[in-house]
């Protein structure tokens, strides 16, 4: 059935195309605005362009690309930056003064003692 229909369509189209009479034009005029639509390929190109350019590109593509560069990638870069900042913020501890070092040394021992006490209690 579909084969028969489409073959029929092809035959009619062929006849219209070959015939030199004004018959096809008359049909076209009678159908009016419909012909217009068909002539513009059902406005598919325009709709396509509108959908892609206006909606998809601006509303989906651009945000996706932006998010990728700034949020997802930014997150990765932030890890690196955070390590740098943290490294910078603790750099003052290494003061070069031996008496400070001794103080840290003692703090370390006390810290360890607390840890041992904690382990011992539990």
């Amino acid at each position: 059935m579909p084969v028969a229909l489409s073959l029929g369509g092809i035959v009619i189209a062929f006849v219209f195309y070959k015939s030199t009479t004004a018959y096809p034009d008359r049909i076209a005029n009678r159908l009016g605005s419909f012909t217009h639509t068909v002539k513009n390929k059902f406005y598919i190109d325009e709709i396509y362009l509108f959908v892609t350019k206006k909606i998809v590109f601006n509303l989906v593509g651009r945000p996706a690309a932006w998010i990728d560069r700034n949020i997802v990638d930014g997150m990765m870069n932030t890890f690196g930056a955070a390590a740098q900042v943290f490294s910078f913020s603790i750099s003052g501890i290494q003061s070069g003064r031996v008496q400070n070092y001794a103080a840290y040394f003692l703090t370390g021992i006390i810290g360890l003692a607390l840890l041992f006490i904690y382990v011992w209690i539990h």
Binding site: Y101, Y104, F105, T107, G108, I109, A113, F116, W120
Partner: peptide, 26 residues
């Protein structure tokens, strides 16, 4: 444990374990 703690800290210093490491870099 206290005596161990002292010995351990001495080792930690020589191994430059944090926070007994400050001398190392200088």
């Amino acid at each position: 444990v206290l005596s161990f703690l002292m010995l351990f800290s001495g080792f930690a210093f020589k191994l430059s374990v944090v926070p007994f490491h400050f001398w190392t870099a200088d």
